[in-house]
Structures are given as structure tokens and as C-alpha cells.
Design a protein around this nucleic acid. Structure first.
Lengths: 344, 344
DNA sequence: GTGAAAGCGCTAACAG
DNA sequence: CTGTTAGCGCTTTCAC
């Protein structure tokens, strides 16, 4: 555990050159005679030497690492998105440092500062506090301080902050869902899942109501079911409650995400209801789950590749001083599978 | 992007104390008078100062970060395990730095060195090259060099390396599966999925064959289907091929993991076969998918909490100089759900 | 081209 | 208790 650490000094010594020269061949941004270069490189290979990133970072060069703060990596939505970011970053020779905060506020901030201290070059924050309907002022202040130091890209809003936003087109998505559903004759539509102070959810719900309005369907508060989270279980229990309490079930259910949809389907099935014969189900996210469930889920796709690219491009764009729009929108597309049916 | 950086010097200056004193209140491992402490802390709060981890790491103190190398975070097995590690680490005030290498050899090593350079305190490597049947000598050498620097814990083997191993009880798991299946009268059992040079897969297969032997069932090479990976698609295509080519289908299928099992089920269903009426399916990993598929999957659980704990405990144990076993085994438990049936 | 030397921000002796 | 003083390993002027 404590063999003599090798440093550029050791290498320099053995190669009979100065540490500066070793540094030069390492960074490749200065000319070194071919002869010395060879010698140094062979030593580097021999010891499998990799320069201490801490020391490097200290001299305030770049770490070529982008930090990504993720609410819950077990959610296929985030896992998939993280992988797309990884790919996009890799193409530009950047690595990602993933940090999971388990949807916990305290942990979120703790991880955030840990990463910031780690000398990441840019920060991407997914979900969480940057996606709250009412932005916390003190939190915003703290984030803005970080914005002074490095590019911060968020998938939510955070009113009045200096972050760059890359948002999903929630409204457009809801429009497509409702258009699809109503084209099939559904008028008794309900929305299940989510937390009311999450901005993306709030937008969906508001849009949902206004479309209902436009369609001349009277809004009934039972149409929107707040579950407080985005899990499979929450969908399951919400649907159970609905079946057990309501006289008339909706003909279509919009799930806040695939996970919740799976729970809804499970509940429906246990109550001997057919999907889509008795109830149609649509959801958001189009994770791999949507294609593998029974029936396969009609779900809203987000163009993850573009999403990942945009997130990374934005971060690096700001970093490199390019002009980058403060807010960008990722389009959505409804992927139609087998979970919806025309009203007969 | 470049407001004057605050450092302990700035804080020290404004507080009228020395940088060392600021450092002392930061690290909390020396006594400071209440008065100065107050002053410093208020400044820290005011500037929302967080010490530069690079500089800290340079002084060779600990970063309290454990690096985790993951093959594919989209696989719920790894996502779940990562979260358990995160929890275990959090309890000891450590953070995780997750790095995904997309099952790519080159990326795996690149990420590895990136993390090592990042001054992580310990390294956990999941799957990948440390889980190859035939360990690559050069790779082993390089890993051993890292072992000299920090604790390295792996979930595979890597013959002759100085890594600490935490392995799943593959053999015990296979025993349970086969005992269960044969107790239900199955004798025509097939194993689908995986890659032959992955050690954990190899162990399962070998055990499978030897149990077949013991049960007096003649081994036929069709009983083991190599797909080369662990994806849903691979299970789907393998089952398709089997159905379309074989006269007699096995009565039971063992899938290498839940994902592959889902693919198998999908194929079976498309061919109008009932599960478990026509074919029983068992799998390994018991991810959340097992509980939500239709039918719900009987799957091998690994005690993820214990797995995560052991991984972290081992890393920190070595780090703190405690005596730690070189190799530990995580027990398995078959979770029985609805995907298997007695032979009638 | 190349070496010497000055930091980067922090911690850890070492004196007081 | 607290300030002073060395570094940690690397990059980067600045001379030569």
C-alpha cells in the first residue's frame, strides 16, 4: 500500500532531464527533443505512470471531467440519459463523474459541493431542487456562486439563476398525448403520479387541464392523482385506490412515467381489467421498460441522444466561451405501441 | 466565470487569523478558541466556501471518495448495487464516484486511470476484465500497481492479483435453482445467455453441467446457449432461434439474468407459449424487473444490501489497515414467484 | 530546447 | 491555542 510513489521527479531523474521536461512531454504543449521525449515516454510506460490529477488540477488546468448530479440512477430514465451524456462527453474526450443523491435534498447539496471541490470543469444537475416549482432563494444564491466558477446546466428551471437550461418539451408532449387519446374518443382521462412541486410535473398537469378545457370536458379534481413520487409502487397503489373507490373508471390513464405505468398496469391486471380493452394507458419517458412490458406501452420519447448531446454541448460550449442559448428545448415524440385503444 | 476565488487565505485575512487556523476549523482536528472559530465559520458561511479538494488531496489526506467502475449502469443489477454501495458509503461519510464504461475494454481502463488520478481513496471494480476466465497478465500487472497505492475490491476474480474479492455465490445459486427445478420434475432444462469467457457465467455453466450429471441427465450442447451478452435482446433472439429450430423445447429455461429472461418471455409469448404452463423460466439477479414482469419472475436474489456493505467495508477496512479476508462470498436466495410450474 | 523557480490551496509539523 | 514554514506533484513563466 505504500511503495514509493512515482512522480515526474522520479521520471525526470531516471531520464536525466528536468521535471519541466517531463511535464512537457506529458502535456504535449511544448517542443521537446525527440531523443529526450523517447526516453521519458519509455519510463512513463515502464512505470505505468499517470500524473496526479490533484496536482494538475491545482495548477488550475482542466480536469476534463464533467460532474453529473442524478436523483436516482435506478430509474431507467436517468440511467439512459446518463449513458447518452457519457457517450457525448466521450466523443469530446471528457469523462463524467456521476453522483447519485437518492432524491434527498441534503444529500443533493452535499454531493454537489463534493463534486465542485473535485475540480470538475462543468456541472450538470438533473431533477431535484433545480426542478422545483418555487425556487428556493438561498439555494439559488449558492448555485449562482457555482455558476461564477464553472458552467452549470440544469434540466429544470431555477428562476433567475445563471444556469443554462435544457428542458424537455413537456407541453408539446402533453399535447401529443391528449391529441392521440382524444382522437381515439377518450374523454374520461385521468393523470396519475408525480409530485405537485416538481416543475415538469406541474407543467404537464396545467397543460392537461387546459386541454381538457379546450375539449369542453369539465375538470374534476379526481382526474389528477398526486402520489408524491415517481415509483412503480405509487402507480400501483394509486390505481388500487381508484378502482376500489370510484364508481366509474376513466377510459384512459396517463402515467407520469413508465415506472408508474407499470404499477398501474399491475393493479389493473389484478383487478381483472384488460389493457387496453378496458383502460388505455399512456406514459412518459419511453424507457426500455415501455417496449418490454405487457402490453407494450405507448410512451412519450424524448430523443435521448439529442438530450445528452445538448447537455454536454452546452456545458462545453460555455466552458470554451462560445455563445450558447440560455434555454433549449428537446422535442418529444409519442411512440405508439399496444396499450391504447379506440373507445368502442 | 472568474470572480475572485476565495481560499483559506482570504478567509483567514478577513477573520484576522492565520490560514492554519482556518484549516483547523475546517478539518476539526485541532482545538481553536471558540471566538475565532465563530468568526471563521461565519465567513465560511458568508462566502459559502468549500475547500479545494485538489489542494486537499495533494497534501495526501483522504478524499473520502471511493471510485466505482461499472460495466453498464442501465442494467438494473448494477444500478441497484451502485445504490447500495452509495448507501453503505454514505453511512461512513464517504461518497462514491461512479464511472460507466459501457462494457468497453478500452474505456474501462481509461476510466480506471482517470479515477486513480482523481485521488480516490479506494477502487471498486465491477464485472469487466476482473471477471474474465483467463486473466490478462499485463492487465493484472497494471492492477497490481494500483493495489500498491490503494485498496482495490473486485466482484470477479483476477487470478494472482492483490485485489480483494467479493463474489456472489454462483455455485450455491445454481444449486438452488436446479434443486428447485428438479423438485418440480423438470429434466429438460436449458440455460440461455451470457458470454463464455466471463467467469461468473462460466462457473454457473460448469455447475449446471455437473448437476445435470449428478441427476443422471445426459448433457447435450444445445442445453447451454451462448449469446455473448446479457441483454434483453439476446434472450429474445436466442429463444426465437430455439423455438424455430428445435423439435422439442425444454420444459424449463434458466436465464443468465432478469433482462435476458424478459427477452425469453417476450419470444415465448409471441410464439403463443404460456409461462409457466408450457415453459418454466428462472433467472438470476432478482432486480426490480423480476417483480414487475408478467408473469412475475422466479429469480435468484443476492442480498444486495449485504453485497454493497461488504464491498464498502472491505475497501475501507483495507484502507484503515484492518485485517480483511482476501475473498468473501455473498449468499444467494431464490425468490419464488410465478414463472415456474410443476411438470404435469 | 531546457532547466530553475515560483506558485496552485491546503495540511501538518514545529515552535512559541 | 496559534502563527510560521514547508512541502504535496504538477504546470508555467522566465532566463539561458
Amino acid at each position: 500500500m505504500d511503495r514509493e510513489k512515482i512522480s515526474i521527479y522520479r521520471i525526470a531523474n531516471e531520464a536525466g532531464v528536468s521535471p519541466a521536461t517531463v511535464s512537457r512531454v506529458l502535456t504535449q504543449n511544448a517542443n521537446v527533443s525527440e531523443e529526450k521525449k523517447q526516453k521519458v515516454e519509455s519510463l512513463i510506460l515502464k512505470y505505468n505512470f499517470s500524473p496526479n490529477a490533484m496536482a494538475r488540477g491545482l495548477t488550475s488546468s482542466r480536469s476534463r471531467i464533467i460532474g453529473v448530479l442524478i436523483p436516482d440512477i435506478r430509474n431507467p430514465f436517468y440511467a439512459g440519459l446518463a449513458v447518452e451524456c457519457e457517450r457525448a462527453a466521450g466523443e469530446r474526450d471528457y469523462s463524467l463523474m456521476l453522483s447519485n443523491y437518492m432524491n434527498d435534498r441534503k444529500m443533493e447539496e452535499q454531493r454537489l459541493y463534493k463534486m465542485v471541490g473535485q475540480q470538475i470543469d462543468a456541472l450538470i444537475i438533473m431533477g431535484g431542487r433545480v426542478d422545483e416549482v418555487i425556487s428556493n432563494e438561498a439555494y439559488k444564491e449558492r448555485i449562482n456562486q457555482i455558476c461564477d466558477t464553472m458552467p452549470v446546466v440544469i434540466t429544470g428551471k431555477l428562476e433567475g439563476s445563471n444556469c443554462y437550461q435544457v428542458n424537455l418539451d413537456e407541453m408539446g408532449g402533453m399535447d401529443q398525448v391528449m391529441k392521440y387519446l382524444s382522437s381515439m374518443g377518450h374523454r374520461d382521462i385521468c393523470m396519475i403520479g408525480g409530485k405537485k412541486d416538481v416543475d415538469s410535473t406541474c407543467i404537464k398537469r396545467t397543460r392537461f387541464r387546459s386541454i381538457l378545457d379546450r375539449l369542453g370536458i369539465e375538470f374534476c379534481s379526481d382526474y389528477i392523482v398526486e402520489t408524491g413520487d415517481y415509483s412503480l409502487e405509487s402507480g400501483y397503489w394509486a390505481m388500487n385506490r381508484m378502482i376500489e373507490s370510484r364508481k366509474k373508471l376513466p377510459t384512459a390513464v396517463i402515467a407520469i412515467n413508465d415506472l408508474t405505468a407499470l404499477g398501474i398496469i399491475q393493479s389493473l391486471r389484478e383487478h381483472a381489467m384488460g389493457i387496453p380493452e378496458d383502460v388505455s394507458v399512456v406514459s412518459f419517458d419511453n424507457t426500455f421498460l415501455a417496449g418490454t412490458s405487457v402490453p407494450r406501452l405507448t410512451s412519450m420519447d424524448y430523443g435521448y441522444e439529442q438530450f445528452g448531446n445538448t447537455l454536454i454541448e452546452t456545458a462545453l460550449g460555455v466552458l470554451e466561451g462560445r455563445e450558447v442559448p440560455k434555454k433549449q428545448i428537446i422535442p418529444t415524440e409519442l411512440i405508439i405501441r399496444d396499450s391504447c385503444q379506440k373507445i368502442t
